[in-house]
């Protein structure tokens, strides 16, 4: 798909579920290749958090194509979803690699964006994912906040602008969502 097409889709104010599913892989790859190029540019080692990565991806996309307000909002929403996908994939790869260490060769790709084990372990990510799936069924709004804040790394202010909802409510939703996931894990 051409980037121009992607922009057009993103700028559309009414996106249905199917469209989301269609363009998620594009953003997913976009983020991955961006992560790769960021790594090559910075020869010295560095730690970059997910938000800056998403932001860089946005700038790159925005440079050649104009994303309007809707497009920007959609892009950030989508990026967080992609980030979730990448990290969950990584966690799975990491756990299966643990079982069969011989296959470590082909997982280079997965480590471009690595799970920060210091913060959350791979098995925790899988467990969180499982809880998040359940939460999506119970209350998709809460689940969305988790995706934006936890995976996208967006601040409550950013999320409140994105969803046009008061910041206090976002914080309340986050607390509740986090509490639910916690209850499923511990």
């Amino acid at each position: 798909m051409q980037v121009a097409q992607l922009t057009k889709i993103l700028n559309n104010s009414n996106m249905d579920a199917r469209t989301w599913d269609e363009i998620l892989p594009i953003v997913y790859h976009q983020l991955k290749s961006l992560a790769r190029s960021v790594k090559h540019q910075h020869k010295q080692s560095l730690t970059l958090n997910t938000t800056s990565l998403v932001h860089e991806a946005y700038i790159k996309l925005g440079k050649s194509n104009r994303l309007d307000i809707n497009g920007t909002r959609h892009f950030y929403q989508l990026a967080a979803k992609a980030m979730r996908q990448i990290l969950v994939d990584n966690a799975r790869a990491k756990l299966s690699q643990k079982r069969t260490p011989e296959n470590s060769e082909n997982t280079q790709e997965n480590y471009l964006l690595e799970i920060d084990n210091q913060v959350t372990s791979a098995s925790e990510i899988i467990a969180i994912e499982r809880a998040l799936k359940k939460l999506e069924k119970l209350d998709s709004k809460l689940a969305e906040i988790v995706i934006y804040h936890f995976y996208g790394g967006y601040t409550f202010v950013q999320i409140s602008e994105m969803l046009n909802t008061p910041e206090r409510s976002i914080m309340r939703y986050w607390d509740k969502a986090k509490a639910y996931i916690y209850s499923q894990l511990y």
């Binding site: 560095l46 730690t47 997910t50 990584n90 799970i115 969180i128 916690y182």
Partner: peptide
């Protein structure tokens, strides 16, 4: 009650991901 327990836990407080260049 289980959910309330999460209140003061350091849980999901940070981004789970990072870009690492150690492999390059």
């Amino acid at each position: 009650m289980k959910m309330l327990e999460s209140k003061n836990q350091d849980f999901m407080g940070q981004f789970p991901g990072k870009i690492s260049t150690e492999h390059l």
